[in-house]
């Protein structure tokens, strides 16, 4: 079967790739573009480790086909920092030890960023429900939630 030629934008850079119809966006990011920051934990949309932004929507990259990325804009963990300046979420995850083993961290960061874009001042409960699709087995979520709250506070202060 012939592969499809796809042009897409990842973290602001244009990429072209050839894609089997059954290849997911996650397969493409990891195996074709070698952007391995986005992780695979289940490939069934249940763990959130592959969370990315697709044209501003939070999605599991394992549930999106590679061909669907055509003409779209994708944001992954590799695009969070600006130059040598970490995103406030990244900085707070470091300070609060929100990343233990680190495998869920890229997905958590992307999902948390999506939350703070729609709700700059989320309650603890709102954060817990928003991140309920992102599994973590190391932390018990405590330090992740605290890191997100701290980042939200800092981002609000910067804005005001």
């Amino acid at each position: 079967m012939a592969k499809s030629h796809v042009t897409t934008t990842v973290n602001g850079d244009e990429y072209e790739f050839l894609c089997d119809t059954e290849q997911t966006l996650l397969d493409i990011l990891r195996d074709e573009l070698l952007l391995t920051g986005t992780k695979e934990g289940c490939a069934t949309g249940d763990c959130g480790a592959c969370s990315v932004m697709l044209d501003g929507c939070l999605v599991c990259a394992c549930l999106v086909l590679g061909v669907e990325a055509a003409g779209k804009s994708i944001e992954t963990v590799e695009g969070l920092a600006h130059g040598d300046e970490l995103h406030p979420l990244q900085q707070k995850f470091l300070e609060h030890n929100g990343a233990q083993c680190g495998i869920c961290t890229p997905g958590m960061l992307i999902a948390a960023k999506a939350l703070l874009e729609v709700e700059p001042d989320p309650s603890e409960t709102e954060i817990r429900y928003w991140l309920a699709g992102n599994l973590c087995r190391c932390t018990g979520y405590d330090k992740i939630i605290r890191a997100v709250m701290a980042a939200a506070e800092e981002m609000r202060e910067v804005r005001s």
């Binding site: 391995t36 992780k39 590799e78 470091l94 961290t105 890229p106």
Partner: peptide
């Protein structure tokens, strides 16, 4: 004390190489 861990930045930027991240 609670310094930031040496593996921290790699883990929040997607640089950290896990089992499946090698080609």
């Amino acid at each position: 004390t609670t310094p930031i861990k040496p593996d921290g930045v790699d883990k929040v930027t997607g640089r950290a190489k896990f089992g499946a991240d090698v080609h």
